[in-house]
Structure formats: structure tokens, C-alpha cells
Design a protein around this nucleic acid. Sequence first.
DNA 1: CAATCAACCTGGGTGC
DNA 2: TGCACCCAGGTTGATT
Length: 271
Amino acid sequence: MPELPEVETIRRDLEKLIVGRKVLGIETNSPKQVQPSLAVVKKAIVGATIKKVQRRAKILQIFFSNGTIVIFHLKLTGRLLVRNKGDRPDDWQHITINLSGNKELRFADSRKFGWLRLLKDEKELQKILGEFGPEPFVDLTLPVFQKILSSTSRPVKIVLMDQKKIAGVGNIYANEALFLAKIDPRRPAKKITKQEAENLYHSLEKVLKLGLKYRGASDQYYLDAQGHKGSYQEHFLVYGRQGQKCFHCQGLIKRITLGGRGTFYCPSCQK
DNA sequence: CAATCAACCTGGGTGC
DNA sequence: TGCACCCAGGTTGATT
């Protein structure tokens, strides 16, 4: 599922592939995923040129030459793909933006949870982005991280994944970071010691960097903007490994449900 | 404010 | 092979 490293990988691809191109048209077979409506979005972007592509948390932002801003959320199964006009349709292709140079930006999404949204102005964007917690590698510093953990008794894994507390971390990276830091995902966040929090902070940065290095983790859905899989899933230490041997202690990885989500950990390594 | 849960969807897996 | 059923999970919003 697209988390910070996956969305950032797509952003870097899009920066190379679509900046400078002009929008010639947009169509959809899933109108609910286009907000506020296809007609309004079409009017705003057709004829405009793509100026830059940014990311904050798991939100991708496309800025146009006419001042228009469009944002995307891929949710669980969304893909943004750049194809040549006439290429065979992609699986679950629901939105197509025709670009100059015979290119298409396609939004494909098996479960249709993702969306594209036209914003009124920069102010609306700032309001949306302001809802997110600090961004890893930017303003999520160690002291800030320690303070976030110390301020709540919720399970530490749930805090890592809470977008209002920390931006961009989802299920995969939360599980992997907690394993590296040898912390039980169910521990109340405020009971994490300062030293443990420091370890967890560095573990989180480490797994996010690995995710970027391997161009994301591909379950059956995630692809980069060129349609290629990432390879971080080949390096998972706990995610999806329930019943298999822990690489550190040879004990068995366990799966539990925490906050309604699959949670993977090594009961003997993570305390 | 925090915890719980349904809703949004669909495909993949399971069991018969 | 068919079919009913269950489940995943990012996020929002309602409810307790």
C-alpha cells in the first residue's frame, strides 16, 4: 500500500515524466473519484501546463501554470501511471488525463478508495496539509518525536500510523521500524523510554530510507509511475511473515490485530 | 478527548 | 468449476 516511500517514488517519477506537458483532456469511468466533478476539473486544467509535483504525507500535489492545484490520494490500491497514448488500458484504469507529447497520466485503483481533487487555491492546500503531523526527514526531529510519544498512552504502533501525529507512515513501515527498535507494537507510547524512542526514531528513518532505495514495497497493487514494481517487500523482516522464523532469534513471527490492522512482530525480540 | 466501529469498494482467498 | 462468504486496510465520520 502506498506510504511515504511509495508516494515519494511516484512523485520523483512524475517530476521527470510530466512536468512541462500540457493537459489536452480528462476522462473518467468512475466519477465519484473526481472531486468536485469531472466538468469542473476539466474546465480548470485543460490547456494548462504542469509546473511541478510535490508530496506531503501521502498526498501528491500537481501544480499548474495557471495557478490551479490538483491533489491525489492513492489510499490502498491507487496507481498513477504515465503511458503513451494508445498503450493497452491498465487494470482498473478509472481516470485518464491526456497530455501533450502523446502521453497519458492514468489513475488506476482496484478498490476505488483513492481520489483526485481540484483545490480552489493555495490557501485550501495549506489548510489540508496543515492537518498532518510533522514530516519525516523535514520537521520530525528527535525531540519532536519523543514529545509525540510521551503525550499519549495509545499503543505506539497506532501513534506511528496516526497521520495527525506523524505524516506518511503506514502499516508496513510502522511494523518494520518497531521490529528494528525491538519494541512491542502494543506498548503504550508514553511508556517508551527516551532511549527507546531514540532507537525507534532512527529505525523509522532507516526503514523509510530503505523503502525509497528499493523504490517502494509492492504487494499485489503498488507500481511506480512507469508501471514497475518496487522491491522492498523482498527485504521485509516482519511484515506479512507470520508463522515464519525471525531472522534474529529464529522464533516465530506472530500476527495480531491492533487498531483493526494486521500487526506483525517477534514476541521474543520485541519487548 | 480516546476508543470502537461502520462505511467506502473490489478482488483474492477459503471452504464446500 | 461455481458460489457464498470473509477479509484487507487508509481515512473519515458517527457513536459510545
